[in-house]
């Protein structure tokens, strides 16, 4: 009688090439659905053949300049995982790891670290000296080089991310709804400063794929094998194709409207505006501290000069200082609070 042979669990690897913007989203959702139903854990790679915008599950569509996207021919889709609105194009290699929820740590933070670790190893093999910083950003120095989001889709967990070969900062900024040209200019400045690989770094997508396969297989204890999409996945993808262009799905869950506006460039880096009591505040925050603040408070020089004094302080400290500057100062502090930035 022969010995029973234990077949090691496998990691299915799907190189899906270049697909339409819609399929750049629905394909990996379909894969995650099937992994939830018992399909092999899967690492997949694809690119979109045209620009599009992907918005995180909970985020308001108000954050996207839908009219501008429409004029540029960039469709907008809502994904089932987290994070904010992002511009995707063919200069980004999109990767996704889908595996049973029971295979990842119960702690969300630990789950993310366990899945981002192999991704970081792949970045380094691709020529991008990335690391995972203490704020869970994949960075080179202080520049974010990988956008990611994660979520549980039925009984599967999926992490999606991108290898940015060339980042189109102008387009990425233009798809966002921004209250005024100055804020848009500031957003672009910080996007250029803090997003994308340094100019002297180039990413090798082929090396990234090979290294990602090895790193994820090693980390998960799985044996990689090339695979294909199943019939069930193709069927599911067609269902999702219809769902993702449905207006109700795109609108997303009911969200409270914020009185202020904010845009996150990377962890700890924000542009925000708010208005209260005839006072308008615009602030840039870097490393969770105010880098620039402009206050429009007609006829009140004290509060405008106070704005200069908050540089280098946290938003909480800045608000406390402004509150000491009379009614306009208190209004400025209120305006900052309206943006709802969750930093000190």
């Amino acid at each position: 009688m022969g010995r029973a042979v234990t077949v090691p669990e496998q990691l299915r690897v799907l190189e899906l090439g270049t697909v339409s913007p819609l399929r750049s989203q629905t394909l990996w959702h379909a894969i995650a659905k099937e992994v939830s139903g018992g399909e092999t854990p899967t690492l997949s790679f694809l690119r979109t053949d045209a620009g599009c915008v992907s918005i995180g599950y909970h985020r308001s569509l108000d954050e996207v300049d839908v009219g501008h996207c429409s004029r540029r021919g960039w469709p907008v889709y809502r994904r089932m995982v987290g994070g904010g609105p992002v511009f995707l194009d063919g200069a980004q290699l999109l990767f996704q790891i889908s595996l049973p929820a029971k295979a990842v740590p119960a702690s969300r933070g630990q789950a993310l670290r366990s899945l981002l670790g192999p991704a970081v190893a792949a970045f380094r093999a691709a020529g991008v000296p990335a690391r995972l910083d203490e704020e869970m950003e994949v960075v080179v120095a202080d520049r974010k080089v990988c956008g990611y989001g994660a979520g549980q889709i039925d009984a599967a967990v999926v992490l999606v991310g991108n290898l940015i070969e060339s980042f189109d900062h102008e387009s990425a900024t233009s798809v966002l709804e921004v209250p005024d040209p100055v804020s848009r200019s500031e957003l672009l400045r910080l996007m250029r400063r803090y997003v994308g690989c340094p100019e002297d770094t180039s990413a090798d997508a082929r090396a990234f794929i090979g290294a990602a396969v090895d790193a994820f297989a090693g980390a998960l204890g799985l044996r990689p094998r090339s695979g294909e999409l199943s019939g069930a996945e193709l069927d599911h993808m067609e269902l999702l194709d219809r769902k993702f262009v449905d207006g109700g799905w795109l609108a997303g869950p009911d969200r409270p409207r914020s009185a202020g506006w904010k845009a996150k460039i990377r962890s700890g880096v924000w542009v925000l505006t708010g208005r209260s009591g005839g006072v308008r505040v615009r602030a840039s925050v870097v490393g969770n501290r105010v880098e620039r603040m402009d206050i429009e408070a007609p006829g009140d020089g004290e509060v405008r000069s106070a704005a200069a004094g908050v540089t280098g302080r946290t938003l909480a400290e800045a608000r406390a200082l402004l509150c000491e500057c009379g009614a306009f100062g208190r209004a400025a502090a209120e305006a900052i609070g309206q943006a709802g930035v969750l930093v000190g």
């Binding site: 995180g56 909970h58 995982v81 994070g83 989001g149």
Partner: peptide, 30 residues
């Protein structure tokens, strides 16, 4: 982890035990 977003299903919706009542997002994880 640190909750960034919460969403609930609409009032009047029937759910079975174990089905989603809503969703949360923390650390970009939904």
């Amino acid at each position: 982890g640190t909750l960034a977003q919460l969403a609930m299903i609409p009032v009047g919706t029937e759910v079975q035990r174990g089905e989603p009542l809503g969703s949360l997002e923390a650390e970009k994880f939904v």
